[in-house]
Computed example of a mutant assay.
Amino acid sequence: MKINILVCDWFEDILPPFLPTFPTLIYNLFNQVDATIEYELFDVQKGNFPQLNGNEINLITGSRAGVYENLPWVTALLDFIRSAHQAKAKLVGFCFGHQAIAQALGGEVAPSGKGWGTGIRSSQVIHPEALKYFPDGKMYLNYNHNDQVMQLPPEAELLATSDFCPNEAFMVGNHILCFQGHPEYTKQYAQHVLEKAKGKDAELIRKAMESLQLQTAQGATIARWILNLN
């Protein structure tokens, strides 16, 4: 199995000392499920994209950019997503990646009036395919976002929802799988993000920190699901 990681932000200026690169989080996520996976990185902001191969997973990472921004690399990414969908290549999106796939395929993304979504949040699983992996009907993931998918693409099927973010996860066919959350985040990294947050409400940060202690994110379950994509 090979995963092509489409890196949309390296976060080099905010990485903690214990993390050599941001993609390391993704390596660690999948390696706990399958240690034989091969990885290749593609710097999307420099216009680098993988060749489409039906046997490989193309994973689009988070970013501090917005998918609605008129940036050349964002436009190129949306074109790549449309080509991947047409070829029925395996495509996965985390956070910004989730939003980019929605935007590219006819959905709508915008800043949320609900503000910053952070900490561990639970969402209600509503689709039979998702219930295979979350049989109790709840999905817990780490979050770090201000934008949201306001409208799903016409072909999309909603997988999970919450009051804060109605479109938490969706799929298109059997080859596209998207999550607003960050399955790759560890508790240690999530704490680092909260500790480094500037200009954010102190009570919001306190509650987010508390959520990291009270709940366990289910990133490994998401990784298993992704590896089972047809």
Rank of each mutant, 00 (worst) to 15 (best):
40 E>C: 08
91 L>I: 01
129 E>N: 13
68 Y>V: 01
176 I>Q: 01
148 Q>D: 10
16 P>I: 00
27 Y>N: 05
180 Q>L: 06
44 V>K: 07
2 K>V: 04
132 K>W: 01
42 F>T: 10
104 A>N: 02
131 L>A: 08
216 T>V: 14
140 Y>D: 11
27 Y>R: 09
148 Q>W: 15
20 P>W: 03
113 G>R: 07
218 Q>W: 00
50 P>I: 05
221 T>F: 01
221 T>K: 15
104 A>K: 06
118 T>Y: 07
152 L>P: 00
44 V>S: 03
135 P>D: 08
30 F>L: 03
210 E>K: 09
200 K>D: 10
63 S>I: 06
21 T>D: 13
81 I>S: 05
212 L>N: 04
34 D>R: 12
37 I>Q: 09
42 F>L: 07
88 K>M: 10
60 I>E: 04
102 A>L: 04
177 L>H: 02
83 S>M: 14
1 M>R: 13
222 I>V: 15
48 N>V: 11
195 E>F: 11
49 F>M: 04
73 W>P: 02
78 L>P: 01
36 T>S: 15
147 D>P: 01
173 G>C: 05
188 Q>F: 09
175 H>Q: 10
95 C>N: 01
111 P>G: 06
195 E>Y: 12
205 I>H: 12
229 L>T: 00
75 T>L: 14
117 G>Q: 11
134 F>A: 01
44 V>G: 02
208 A>F: 04
116 W>H: 14
97 G>P: 00
11 F>L: 12
229 L>D: 02
85 H>W: 14
25 L>H: 06
1 M>A: 15
172 V>M: 08
60 I>D: 02
210 E>A: 15
120 I>F: 02
142 N>D: 11
40 E>N: 11
5 I>F: 06
133 Y>P: 04
106 G>F: 03
153 P>A: 03
50 P>H: 07
164 F>E: 08
151 Q>S: 08
179 F>I: 04
126 I>A: 04
138 K>E: 14
41 L>N: 12
120 I>A: 08
138 K>P: 09
230 N>A: 09
11 F>K: 12
13 D>G: 07
32 Q>Y: 05
163 D>T: 09
151 Q>D: 06
79 D>V: 13
79 D>Q: 15
52 L>G: 01
50 P>Q: 05
44 V>M: 07
72 P>S: 11
129 E>F: 14
55 N>L: 13
50 P>R: 06
143 Y>T: 10
133 Y>H: 09
12 E>I: 13
134 F>V: 00
